[in-house]
Design a protein around this nucleic acid. Structure first.
Lengths: 231, 231
DNA sequence: AATTAGATCTCGACT
DNA sequence: AGTCGAGGTCTAATT
């Protein structure tokens, strides 16, 4: 990885054309050739970039650019598309390279799939007397996250989301309409379970007779591992 | 902006929990306090990060961490949410700071809106004898980019895209179906105009009797400004 | 402030 | 390899 601090200007053309006027910025050249241009602010998105696979070559700047103060021109071209990034280097403040080796990568926890797993083994959270029929219950329009049966014999379809928004309610509604046509399942109740439920989504769900369940991920995980300590 | 190369491990908790095992990485601390952890690969998204507003404080590592080789612990907390990022610094390879000053930011050009403007004043590009009815012609399912009338009296609906793909053709098709039901407009012809049209999209469009027009942005802009020089 | 739609989206899973 | 859905989405425009 090459890390450069430089006064530079840049031009991108590809899916759009964009321009960066002269300023001091951080330029990162990764070992796969990809390039990131960062300013000292904003969020994690670079001002401009080129993703792999791509190649970087340094060429002499045009006479016009040189008379404007450019010392070098970096041309980065994507290997498969027409994307092209040109960086006019005016002054290099710092230029270092480091061998980082390979990275073990990010290990995630707490995704929707995990919520689903936890819920499947703690069905009581979704309602008293519920028993699991199966997870990812297949239907013609896609799998229902959790299908359960209540003590009253009724079928219960559960949609699990990290953040519950209206489109999740719409999705569950479509499943309910479909499942309710199956005489072996009908009548089917709906449960919308999420760590966070937007007011609009809650209103829509309740208006359609769908019960909302707010999930506490830490509590679910704590119950799972039997680990109730606070930390 | 502080640029650090360090052997580190990290842990994030917030909307999810995630872990980075020990490896050498690039850590960027921006002047607004935000932090990015990059590996030497992938694209512009960091392995882990914290966006502003947030604060970084360096504390002594726990005894356990220290015995594992940690030299320092950076705790980054978001000012408004519960997001929290902890970086265990094991070995600092490089640590430099630079004052980048403010950045003029990215200037975009060639957006769909601009193409639409240019086309609206150069309707001949879309077909002979066309005259503009209006841009962003409203319908129940969304605005049609350009509505025009041909010399033969027929209505023409134009969908403008930078890159023409199948979903753009589908979108135009829906507009055409809707507009064609209006006796004041029917029959309605479709034109799919884009700087680049994918083969799949072209095939689908032509199969539906939709004419495809490949746009030359530079030519459109040149004609607009009356500036025809090559450069 | 809150909501919506677009993104040079990225990223992973699945077909 | 393409397609689909989710994202710690982010970002800007609009209400």
């Amino acid at each position: 990885m090459r890390v450069v601090i430089a006064r530079c200007a840049a031009q991108y053309s590809g899916r759009l054309t964009a321009r960066l006027d002269l300023a001091t910025r951080l330029i990162i050249v990764k070992s796969d050739g990809s390039v990131l241009i960062h300013s000292d602010g904003g969020s994690y998105k670079p001002l401009n970039w080129m993703g792999p696979p791509c190649s970087l070559r340094e060429v002499a700047p045009s006479e016009e650019a040189a008379s404007g103060g450019a010392a070098a021109l970096w041309v980065i071209e994507h290997a498969k598309t027409e994307d092209r990034l040109e960086i006019e280097i005016h002054e290099i403040v710092s230029d270092t390279s480091h061998d980082l080796g390979s990275d073990p990568g990010l290990v995630k926890d707490g995704v929707e799939a995990h919520l689903q797993e936890l819920l499947a083994s703690q069905m009581a959270v979704l309602g008293e007397g519920l028993s699991l029929v199966r997870r990812e219950y297949p239907t013609a329009i896609g799998p229902v996250d959790i299908l359960a049966r209540g003590s009253n014999g009724r079928t219960v379809a559960v949609e699990v989301k990290r953040r519950g928004e209206v489109d999740g309610v719409e999705q569950l509604t479509r499943y309910l309409e479909l499942l309710d046509r199956d005489p072996l399942l009908s009548p089917v109740e709906g449960v919308f379970a999420a760590q966070e439920i937007k007011p609009q989504a809650r209103t829509l769900a309740e208006d359609r007779g769908i019960r909302c369940v707010l999930l506490d991920y830490d509590a679910l995980r704590g119950a799972e591992t039997g680990d109730h300590r606070l930390f």
